[in-house]
């Protein structure tokens, strides 16, 4: 948006080229071509993703630019007039929709598109993005801490309104966290606008604080800083695998979700290589790779249960209306901010 502010046209091509050369032009040796790929995929998985891809395409080197969802989105928007990225691989679909609205995505129908669950693709034809895996909301409960405070295990979202939980719940701030936003938008879709806000009013009474990032509530629950963190299932499963006394709860009413998705940035000078990468990213091998961490993946038929991941996830995912969420995003966030993000509200 930064650059959108300035109504200047994309000029300075020379400068851009120089910038690209300056920033990314180093270290191109073994591979014929280097793709600059922006991603929000967890750092520990990036090497694996690149290595698997290179097993099939050793001639394309991936240059990762990784940061959290919000920052990568901001960065892409800021670079709108002189994009630095060739491909985005592993960013929230809602973020990609935002970029699509700005006209920054290159529509492309990758090979094997037909095998994807229809939920996992942009409805336009050809689609401007394709999904990889779903990223679902869940509640992380630290069993040790919950026992310490005699807290019952919540089964439903509405259970969280129980005053016993007062001061024992943490959730991400939807203004800064994609996870936070998918929670809020799912509640509004599940309970209706009025019911959703009433639910959040009640929940707010029990919230100890809102965090900036979406994974932090679960990590805080894992480390016992808080008994209950509203976060996403993938994070919970990882922490549980690391030995945290966690229960990952999928609320009965249904859960909000977003997906990690892939797209080509319009204007890339490496379109052929970018297409190769996107083709691979929707393929079977890639989906099996996503399945190592995520239970719900683009090619539903391939999905196998993931350790520590609640098996009922797929069935509980709500029929998420991304369009509605995207178009009402600023209104929802402003309303949320006015209601809960102010010191004036007594907690």
């Amino acid at each position: 948006m930064l650059n959108k502010l300035s109504s200047f046209k994309m000029t300075k091509l020379v400068t851009v080229a120089a910038a690209a050369a300056f920033v990314f032009g180093v270290g191109v040796k073994a591979h014929a071509e280097t793709l600059t790929v922006y991603t929000a995929v967890e750092a520990e998985d990036l090497k694996k993703y690149a290595a698997r891809f290179n097993e099939d395409h050793p001639d394309i080197e991936i240059k990762w630019v990784r940061d959290s969802t919000g920052i990568v989105t901001a960065k892409l928007l800021a670079e709108k007039n002189n994009p630095q990225a060739d491909v985005v691989w592993g960013l929230a679909a809602t973020s990609l929709m935002l970029l699509g609205n700005e006209g920054m995505l290159q529509a492309y129908a990758p090979k094997g598109l037909d095998k994807l669950d229809p939920k996992f693709r942009d409805s336009a034809n050809p689609p401007s993005w394709t999904g990889m895996d779903a990223w679902v909301a869940s509640i992380c409960v630290n069993t040790v801490e919950a026992a310490k405070y005699n807290l019952p295990t919540p089964r439903k979202w509405r259970d969280l309104l129980n005053s016993a939980y007062k001061g024992h719940i943490i959730m991400p701030n939807p203004n800064s966290s994609g996870t936070g936003f998918l929670d809020v938008s799912s509640w509004l879709q599940l309970f209706g606008e009025g019911g959703g806000w009433t639910f959040m009013d009640g929940l707010h009474e029990n919230i100890a604080r809102y965090t900036h990032s979406g994974s932090k509530p679960c990590k805080l629950a894992a480390s016992g800083e808080i008994p209950i963190g509203i976060s996403f299932a993938f994070r919970g499963a990882k922490s549980k695998a690391a030995g945290a006394p966690l229960d990952i709860i999928i609320p009965e009413e249904g859960i909000g979700w977003d997906m990690e998705a892939t797209s080509i940035i319009k204007g890339t000078k490496k379109l052929a290589a970018a297409k190769t990468l996107v083709d691979w990213s929707v393929g079977e091998k890639a989906n099996k790779m996503y399945n190592e961490g995520y239970a719900v993946i683009g090619i539903t038929a391939l999905a196998k249960p993931v350790e520590h991941f609640p098996p009922e996830v797929a069935s509980k995912m709500i029929d998420n209306d991304f369009k509605w969420a995207a178009s009402n995003r600023s209104r929802i966030l402003a309303e949320w901010q006015a209601r809960y993000d102010s010191k004036s509200d007594p907690k």
């Binding site: 948006m1 502010l5 919000g70 901001a74 928007l77 800064s176 809102y210 900036h212 010191k343």
Partner: peptide, 25 residues
């Protein structure tokens, strides 16, 4: 940023506006 919890101050607001909401203005 680290320990402020729900207590907003100007410096963290700038961060939230820019990084969290991409509201540069």
């Amino acid at each position: 940023k680290v320990i402020g919890g729900q207590y907003n101050v100007l410096a963290t607001d700038i961060y939230k506006q820019v990084i969290g909401q991409q509201n540069f203005q």
